[in-house]
Every structure is written in structure tokens, then in C-alpha cells.
Measured scan of single mutants.
Amino acid sequence: TSIVNVSSSLNVRSSASTSSKVIGSLSGNTKVTIVGEEGAFYKIEYKGSHGYVAKEYI
């Protein structure tokens, strides 16, 4: 489990790309479970499925 480190919110994306669809967002200090990594993104558990967040904010 890791913590989201942002002051406002962090986009959760459908794939490991800044141009991919935003499927949701997480607020600062939210706990997330990392299940993998791809480039500059972590794959996380998100709403019963998976999403991707930028590593620099975790």
C-alpha cells in the first residue's frame, strides 16, 4: 500500500500514457495498492479493476 502525494487530485488513467482516457481521480493522502508498473506509471487497484497513475505522485 502506498499513499497519493498531491495537494489537489491525481488522475487515474485507463493505460500508462498521459494521453490515455481519465477514468477517475484520487485525492491526496489516499491509500492505493500497486499491482505493477509500466514506464513512468504504476498500475493500481481501482474500483474493482485497474488504473494507472504517474509514479512521481505516489
Score class of each variant (00 low, 15 high):
Ser19Trp: 07
Tyr57Val: 08
Gly51Thr: 01
Thr33Asp: 06
Gly36Pro: 00
Glu37Gly: 04
Ser2Asp: 08
Tyr42Phe: 10
Glu37Cys: 08
Arg13Met: 15
Ser9Asp: 11
Val12Ser: 02
Ile58Cys: 05
Gly28Phe: 12
Val4Asn: 08
Tyr52Ala: 01
Val12Gln: 00
Arg13Lys: 06
Ser20Leu: 03
Tyr57Trp: 09
Thr33Glu: 07
Glu45Phe: 09
Tyr46Thr: 01
Thr1Arg: 04
Lys55His: 03
Ile58His: 03
Asn11Gln: 15
Val53Ile: 13
Val22Tyr: 06
Val12Phe: 02
Phe41Gln: 01
Thr1Val: 14
Glu56Ile: 14
Ser7Thr: 14
Gly24Lys: 02
Lys55Tyr: 03
Thr33Cys: 10
Val4Glu: 07
Gly24Phe: 09
Lys43Asp: 01
Ser8Met: 12
Lys21Ile: 10
Ile44Thr: 00
Tyr46Leu: 03
Gly36Met: 04
Ser20Arg: 02
Thr33Ser: 08
Glu37Val: 09
Gly48Val: 03
Ser15Met: 07
Tyr52Glu: 00
Leu26Gly: 00
Asn5Trp: 10
Gly48Met: 05
Val53Leu: 05
Lys31Pro: 12
Phe41Lys: 00
Asn29Gly: 15
Ser9Pro: 13
Gly51Phe: 03
Phe41Ala: 02
Ile44Lys: 00
Leu10Asn: 05
Asn5Cys: 15
Ser19Gln: 11
Ala54Gly: 10
Ser8Thr: 14
Ile23Ala: 02
Glu45Asn: 08
Ser8Glu: 12
Ser27Glu: 14
Val4Pro: 07
Ser15Phe: 07
Ala16Ile: 04
Gly28Ser: 13
Val53Met: 03
Phe41Tyr: 08
Ile3Cys: 15
Ser14Leu: 11
Val4Gln: 08
Ser14Gln: 15
Asn29Ile: 08
Lys21Leu: 10
Asn5Gly: 10
Gly28Pro: 15
Ser15Arg: 09
Ala16Leu: 03
Lys31Val: 14
Thr33His: 09
Gly48Ser: 07
Val6Ile: 14
Tyr57Phe: 12
Val35His: 04
Val4Lys: 07
Val6His: 10
Gly39Cys: 05
Ser9Met: 12
Leu26Asn: 00
Gly51Ala: 08
Glu37Pro: 02
Lys21Pro: 15
Gly28Arg: 13
Arg13Ile: 07
Ile34His: 01
Ser27Ile: 10
Ala16Trp: 04
Lys47Cys: 14
Tyr42Trp: 12
Tyr52His: 01
Val6Gln: 08
Tyr52Leu: 01
Gly36Asp: 06
His50Asn: 06
Asn29Ser: 09
Glu45Met: 11
Ser7Val: 12
Lys21Thr: 12
His50Lys: 04
Gly36Tyr: 03
Glu56Gln: 11
Val53Lys: 00
Val32Arg: 00
Asn5Phe: 10
Ser27Thr: 11
Val22Glu: 04
Gly36His: 04
Gly48Asn: 09
Val22Pro: 05
Gly39Ser: 04
Ser20Pro: 01
Thr18His: 15
Ile58Trp: 07
Lys21Cys: 11
Gly24Ile: 05
Ile3Ser: 09
Ser17Pro: 00
Ser17Lys: 06
Ile44Asn: 00
Ser25Asn: 10
Val22Phe: 06
Gly39Ile: 03
Ser14Trp: 08
Ser19Pro: 05
Ser20Ala: 14
Val22Lys: 05
Ala40Cys: 14
Val53Ala: 03
Ala54Pro: 15
Ile58Thr: 05
Tyr52Asp: 00
Val22Met: 05
Gly48Gln: 06
Lys21His: 10
Ser14Phe: 12
Tyr52Trp: 11
Ile44Glu: 00
Ser9Leu: 11
Ile58Arg: 03
Ile3Asp: 06
Phe41Leu: 01
Ser8Lys: 12
Phe41Ser: 02
Ser15Pro: 01
Thr1Trp: 07
Ile58Gly: 03
Val4Gly: 14
Ile23Leu: 08
Lys47Arg: 10
Tyr52Gln: 00
Asn5Arg: 06
Tyr57Thr: 08
Asn5Glu: 09
Ser25Val: 15
Asn29Met: 11
Asn5Leu: 14
Ala54Gln: 14
Val53Gly: 02
Tyr57Pro: 05
Asn5Thr: 14
Glu37Gln: 09
Gly51Tyr: 02
Ser2Arg: 08
Tyr57Gln: 11
Ser14Glu: 15
Ile3Gln: 09
Lys31Arg: 13
Ile3Leu: 10
Ile34Lys: 02
Tyr42Gly: 00
Lys55Phe: 03
Gly51Glu: 01
Thr33Trp: 10
Ala40Glu: 13
Ser2Trp: 15
Leu10Ser: 06
Glu38Cys: 12
Glu37Phe: 05
Ser9Lys: 13
Ile3Met: 12
Tyr57Leu: 10
Ser14Asn: 10
Glu45Arg: 07
Ser14Ile: 14
Lys55Pro: 00
Lys47Gly: 12
Val53Thr: 01
Val35Leu: 14
Lys47Ala: 11
Gly48Thr: 06
Val35Tyr: 05
Ser20Gly: 13
Thr1Phe: 07
Gly24His: 03
Tyr52Met: 00
Thr33Leu: 09
Gly51Ile: 01
Lys31Ser: 11
Tyr57Arg: 07
Ser15Thr: 10
Ser25Gly: 06
Thr1Met: 12
Ile44Met: 01
Lys21Glu: 13
Thr18Tyr: 15
Ile3His: 10
Val6Lys: 08
Gly48Asp: 08
Ala16Thr: 05
Val32Asp: 00
Gly28Ile: 14
Ser49Arg: 10
Arg13Gly: 04
Lys21Ser: 13
Tyr42Ala: 03
Ser49Thr: 12
Lys31Tyr: 12
Thr1Gln: 12
Ser2Phe: 14
Lys43Ser: 03
His50Glu: 06
Gly28Val: 13
Ala54Trp: 10
Ser15Val: 05
Lys43Cys: 09
Ser19Phe: 09
Gly39Lys: 05
Ser8Gln: 12
Glu56Met: 11
Ser27Phe: 09
Ser17Asn: 10
Val32Glu: 00
Gly36Arg: 03
Ser9Gln: 11
Asn29Glu: 08
Gly28Trp: 12
Ser8Ile: 13
Tyr46Ser: 00
Thr18Ile: 13
Gly28Asp: 09
Thr30Glu: 11
Ile34Gln: 01
Thr30Phe: 09
Tyr42Gln: 01
Asn5Met: 11
Leu10Met: 08
Gly51Arg: 01
Thr1Glu: 12
Ser19Thr: 12
Arg13Tyr: 15
Glu37Trp: 07
Val32Gln: 01
Leu10Thr: 14
Lys47Thr: 04
Tyr46Lys: 00
Asn29Phe: 13
